[in-house]
Structures are given as C-alpha cells and as structure tokens.
Design a protein around this nucleic acid. Structure first.
Length: 419
RNA sequence: GGAAGGAUGGGUGAGCUGGUUUAAACCAGCGGUUUGCUAAACCGCCGUACGCUUGAAAAGGUGUACCGAGGGUUCGAAUCCCUCUCCUUCCGCCA
C-alpha cells in the first residue's frame, strides 16, 4: 500500500508508474478525496482542542457548550471516516511501483531471459509427459481425485508420494543448513486481515478459498502460499534492528481457486487447487531488498543445480509482475514433453509495500522507525519439481531415475519402476 | 463448554478510590564523557499515527488521537459500565 503523502508529493511519477503496470485509476478522485479528508481532520481537531480546554478549565458555565461541541465532532468524524474509507479502498487496490531496472512491457512476452543453466537432454525416444509416466507407474491418480474431490486435484501414491516428500525434505534441509533459513511449520489458515497484509485481499478475493468457521469468528482463508503467513509473522510490530534479517522457510500445502484459468493446463498436475510448495521469506532492512532478492534467487536455483535440472532465470516485465512486487525473477525448469521452460519458482522483492499494509516496522541505525522490506520466493514448488524430475529423469522403459541428492531420502534406491 | 484473573510504549512493569499522568521506573536502543581497545561507570536522548506549519532539502516547531478492539457514562476516562478478541490458571471434553 502506498503512502498518500508520497503520492501527493510525486504525483506525476506515480501516474507514470501506474501506467506502466496497466493500472487504470481515477487520479483526480484520489487527490480530491485526500484534500477533503485533510480539511475534515483539521476542522475536527480544532473542535477537539476547544473541548479539551473547557474540560481543563472545569468551568461549569461552559459544560453545556462542550456537550454541543461533542455532537459536532461526532458528525465530522463520521464524514471524515467515510471519506478516508473511500480513499483507503482505492489505495489498497493499487499495485506496487516497479523498480527502475524492471523491463517495461505489457505481459509475459516482454519478460527478459537473463540466465540459462544446465544441459537439455537429448532423448533417444519421444519423452512422455509427467502424467503419462505417473499413470503408467500407477502412482499418479487423477480419476480417483475427481471421484472423491473434483477436478484439479490428484492422488500421488506409493514411491511417487515418497519422492514428493523427499523433494520437500531435501529443499528444507538445503535452505536451513546451507542458506541460513529457519524452518517454520505454520497454520494453513489465516484471517482476512493477514490476507490483506500481503495483498491477496481485497483485490484477489476470487482466487482464495474461504473457510466456513463459527459465526462469531472473523473470516478465515486457506493460504494460497506460505508467503502469506510467513510474511505476516512480523505484522503490527516494531522489530529490533539486531533481529534482522529474518529468514524463514516452510513447506506447506497451498490452495488456489485458479479462477480465470479454466482452459489452461487442464491435464496433469501443473495447475492444481492444492499443491505443496517450499516457500522462502525474508524480512530485511528496506535498503537491503535488492541484495536479498539476489541471495534468495540464488537459494532457489541452488536446488535446481543440485537436482541437475536445466533451467533459466527471467526477469518479469512491468506488465507481468504480481500485485505486491517491485521486482520479480521467475525461474523456469525445462519440461521435455512440452519442449519448453515452465515456471517453478518466483522470487519477488516487495520493498516496503507489504510492510505498510501490515504495519511491520523496525528501528533503523538512526533509531528512526521505518517500514521493513519483505521478500518471498518459492524454493521451490514441490509438485512442479516432481513433474520436472519425472520428465527429465525418465527412461525409455517408463521408469524414472532418482537424482543423486535425493537418494539418501529414498532409501538409496536408484529408480522408480513399474511394479 | 464452565469458573476466575489478566492485556499499558521495542521489552519488563507501576498507575486503575475518574481532573499534577502531559503514562512513572527499569531494561534494551541511540548520542556523549571517560578510556590504548573492550567492558564498566556517569550524563543526555528515546512511543505510534495523522493534521497544520518553517525549510530547497536535511531537520525542526506545533496540534489532535491512541494504554488489546469496538461502543457507552461524564464537562472530562488508561482508570467506571457493556460487548468482543486474545492470553493465563483451574474444571470438563478430546487427537
């Protein structure tokens, strides 16, 4: 969320940034609401001062007048709150401003590749898709999921279920032992306020699963990514400088409605309503965001290096970035059956954008309170890593080799084959 | 689910028989003195948000609100009343 003061001050810059992000806004309305709001605050504060003086004087003759002032204040207060709410509603739906080095563009076609790693294997046969491999092995069962739950879910069985768990454990171990992250096992449900903090609400409510809870309770949602709950660990607090940076990692299921992607990736487990993801979150001094983003992205690619999966790193254009991001790297893994790279991780710096929404602050070196910087990245999407291993490590007879680094997690077996 | 107690600044914690509280004190933090360095000691500063204002800016000045959240009583609420949330302890139930 943006500070209205900054918008007021750098209005033209702000306008331009929003155009880069294809955001259509009624800029004049923002300014006029802001002015009205401030005028009402002034009026109200003057009355409050008068009232305060009367009560201090303890002059009984003025008591009646004080009462009169109270009703006026109530009235002004209501007006001001309504204006402020209108303003906040608009502000809370405005995306973050891209950093200067983010390529300007309309959509994903304007993203820029910046790195390509690993050798793409030349198969002597036509490589099968992950779902063909999985179904042949009898270890991916989409029909069973349809029967019990619905579309876009899957049963992972037997050795593939172990492999999925192995992937997750391997990632967590790498991030905790080598990359300096602390493991967290968080709640998978959050309040609406928490969803607001990271930017899922109010604008993207349609993508979220809401849980029916007791009437009395506030609203609760299933997390669409652990980013939501890990980032919000610092909400509504002022952190000591010496406890920064905070680096946490969690492996959690993620729940997404995938509204608006009806035709996309209907086959296989590329796009599911529920999937496991290992998520990295960093809370840093806001001046360290850029460095931390590189560090985080390197932590994510380290996994692919160790798994010996070919990948590329791209920087998202202004038109393709997520709502809260100021700069995003996507990491895409090679899928032989599709003959192209597919997203397996997305690492973003959000600057102070989420911190403002969460009111997450710290005391900087000058002892001045300032908003923290927040970053999040997948390290990596577990389901898609499973897919990548199935496809890249497949052999002609339908079995799948186990990547060396995962063998210790799989009873040191070499491959998974048809029973 | 029942009963009792509690929630105060970054932390600990007084105030809670309405008006010298304009939120004490301690710790942490920041600045300084001393010092070969560290430590210690001593001195000073130190809540948050928003408005107005001086200034090119950095940084000041000033006002209002805020003592878990929201309402109420009152000329006046951290303090009294109501509702809710969360925490602690005890009882019951339970993986």
């Amino acid at each position: 969320m943006h500070n209205i003061k900054d918008i007021r001050k750098n209005f033209e810059d702000f306008k331009k940034s929003m155009e880069l992000r294809n955001t259509d806004l009624d800029f004049e309305n923002i300014l006029s609401l802001d002015e009205k709001n401030r005028a009402l605050i002034q009026e109200k504060e003057n009355l409050e001062k008068e009232k305060k003086n009367i009560s201090k004087s303890k002059d009984e003759k003025l008591f009646a007048k004080s009462k009169e002032i109270s009703t006026k204040i109530d009235d002004l207060s209501k007006k001001q709150h309504s204006i402020k709410k209108q303003l906040d509603d608009i502000l809370s739906s405005i995306p973050n401003i891209p950093l200067k080095d983010v390529p300007i563009g309309k959509d994903e076609n304007d993203n820029k590749e910046i790195l390509k790693v690993g050798e793409i294997k030349n198969f002597a046969f036509k490589p099968k898709s992950h779902y063909e491999i999985g179904e042949k092995l009898n270890m991916l069962d989409f029909d069973l999921a349809t029967k019990t739950t619905g579309s876009r879910f899957v049963f992972v069985k037997d050795k593939l279920a172990s492999l999925e768990r192995a992937i997750s454990n391997f990632m967590i171990d790498t991030h905790t032992k080598i990359n300096g992250y602390t493991e967290i096992s968080p709640p998978l449900m959050v309040t609406d306020e928490t969803m607001f903090g990271t930017g899922q609400l109010p604008k993207f409510e349609n993508d979220q699963f809401e849980i029916k809870f007791d009437e009395k309770e506030g609203r609760k949602f299933l997390i669409p990514t652990a980013e939501v709950i890990l980032t919000n660990m610092v909400k509504n607090q002022i952190i000591n400088l010496n406890s920064l940076p905070i680096r946490v990692v969690a492996s959690t299921p993620c729940f997404r409605k995938e509204a608006g992607s009806y035709g996309k990736d209907t086959k296989g487990m590329i796009r599911q309503h529920q999937f496991y993801k290992v998520e990295l979150v960093s809370i840093v001094e806001n001046s360290n965001c850029i460095d931390e983003l590189e560090r985080m992205t390197n932590s994510a690619t380290m996994i692919l290096d160790k798994l010996k999966l070919p990948y590329r790193k791209i920087i998202l254009s202004t038109g393709d970035m997520g709502f809260s991001a100021e700069k995003t790297y996507d990491i895409e893994v090679w899928l032989p059956s599709e003959n192209k790279y597919r997203e397996i991780s997305s690492c973003s710096s959000c600057g102070t954008f989420q911190a403002r929404r969460m009111k997450a602050r710290y005391k900087n070196k000058e002892n001045v309170t300032d908003f923290v910087g927040t970053l999040n990245g997948s390290g990596l999407a577990v389901g898609r890593t499973l897919i990548a291993i199935l496809e890249n490590y497949q052999t002609e007879d339908g079995s799948v080799q186990i990547p060396d680094v995962l063998k210790p997690y799989m009873d040191n077996i070499d491959k998974i084959s048809i029973n």
